[in-house]
Each structure stands twice: as C-alpha cells, then as structure tokens.
Amino acid sequence: MDLAAIVGLNVLSGIASLVLISLGLAIIFGMMKIINLAHGEFLMLGAYATVLSTNHGVNIWFAMLVISPVFVGLVGILVERTLIRVLYGRLVDTMLATWGLSLFIVGLVTMIFGNTINGVPTPLGGFQVGAYRSDLYTPFLALVALLLLCGVVVVLRFTRFGLIARATMQKPDMASALGVDPDRVYMATFGIGAAVTGLAGGLLAPVSGVAPTMGSAFVAKAFITVVGGGASILAGTASASLLFGSINQMGSYLTTPVFGEVILLVAATLLIRVLPEGITGRFFRGSL
C-alpha cells in the first residue's frame, strides 16, 4: 500500500515534470509551428538565473517564480526579434538557427561560469508514507504544473489576448485582415513560451544539477511530448504528458531510469507511426 502510494507519487512527479519542461515548447510550436531547438538552453538559463540570484541572497521563491521567467522571457523576445522573425515561413532554417543558438548559449555560459555543476538546496521539507520518505517539493511541482495548465486555459479562453492568439493560430492572414498584427502576436507568444520555460528551469534547479549542458537532459523528453501531443497546446501537452509520464515512470520502476526513457521513446515512435499528427491530430481536434 505504501509502495503503491510512493510509485503513484513518482508517476505524478513524472507527469508534472513533463508538463513543466514541455509547455513552453508546446506554446511556441502550437502558435507558430516552429520547433525551438534552443529550448533546453532556455531551461538552463532559467535554472542559472535561480541559482545565481539565490547565491546572491535573493529569496529562492522570488528567484524561481519571478526572476527566472522574467529573465528568460526577455531573452526569448530578444531572440524572436533578432532571429526568428527573419526566418518566418522557413521552418527548417528556423530549426537550424535555433540549434546554432543553442550551441552559442551553451558556449557562452561555459565561457562565463565554467563547466561546473551548481545547485541550490531543495526548499520545503519531506514527509513520511509508512516506511518510505518523500519530499514535499514533488507535490508542489505537480501543483505548479496544474496551475500553469489552468493558466493557459484561462488566458486562451477568457481574455482578449487569448482570442487574438487563437485567431492568429487558426488563420494568420484572416486575423491580419481584421486588424491584428500577427508580428506582435508572435513576439508575445515567443516571449511567453520562453518565460514558461524559464519558470520550469527555475523550478527544476533545486532537483537537478545546474550545468551549461543540462538542457540536453531535458530536450529529448520535451520534444517527444510536443511531437506526440500534436498541435493543440493544452490538450496535446496534457494528454501526451499523462501518457508518456506514466509510461516513463512505470518503465523506470520496473527496469532502470535509462530503460524507462527507452521505453518512452519506443512508445512515442509507435504513437507517431499510428498517429502522425500526434494525439490531438486525431482526438480532441480543435481543442485548445
């Protein structure tokens, strides 16, 4: 019983971390149809922002929840203005450019902070489930993931910006004819996607080693989740995270964490063969 509770908690944590690391990517992919290969580096920048500000005496909650998203969001807007905008409509070139950006950022951070692993202590304590111990940070991550998903629903469904964003997502030229400037919508989208990624990076800083190359540990899962989920931001991320998070954690529990990842990849490849446009290409069509 206790073991079941702990495994359940692990599955929950797997799902939550998938939501966190892939939501920013999914926002950008869903709105602009581009894959940001520098996604892992955005996560890394978010984590660095948290570690550096905490080490300089800033409250860790403020660092994670405010400084990281704001900083990475600004970086995102800068990238969109200087790089992405030039390559609109050239999907493959955008991928290549963001990959170049990813190497560039890794190199830059290595040059500034060195190739060392930093970290911050995990806030919140632990709790006891029968014979097992777990820490409170995991349920907190799950809560934040849930709040983020709710936030996406609220923004897209109930705000004016959400209406404009959805319109641009469906038919950019029609939205443009009705007086919306798609250019600005894309800029805001990229900034928001980057900010969400930065927040995820900040939140993951206490539970992972913060190093210049940490991004590559996350991007594989994030890409699988977004590709598996398909074009809908919310339904895609949620369903793919639910599916892949459970598969990954159960696989890890039954074998090793690494083979859990392999099982995840095999499942995703099979899924792509059956549903080439992702889960939301077939089910929940037209959802958010």
């Binding site: 070139d93 290549l96 990959w99 190497l103 190199g107």
Partner: peptide, 20 residues
C-alpha cells in the same frame, strides 16, 4: 579564450541567416 560550442553556434547562425 573561446569555447568550441560558442564558435560553432555562431558559424551555424551566420550561415543560416546570411548564406543558407
């Protein structure tokens, strides 16, 4: 002085933007 990733990333960026 320079990190290899930094230079390679910059080269890739320049080529995509200027000389695809």
């Amino acid at each position: 002085l320079l990190d290899a990733n930094f230079v390679l990333g910059a080269i890739l960026l320049v080529f995509v933007l200027v000389l695809p």
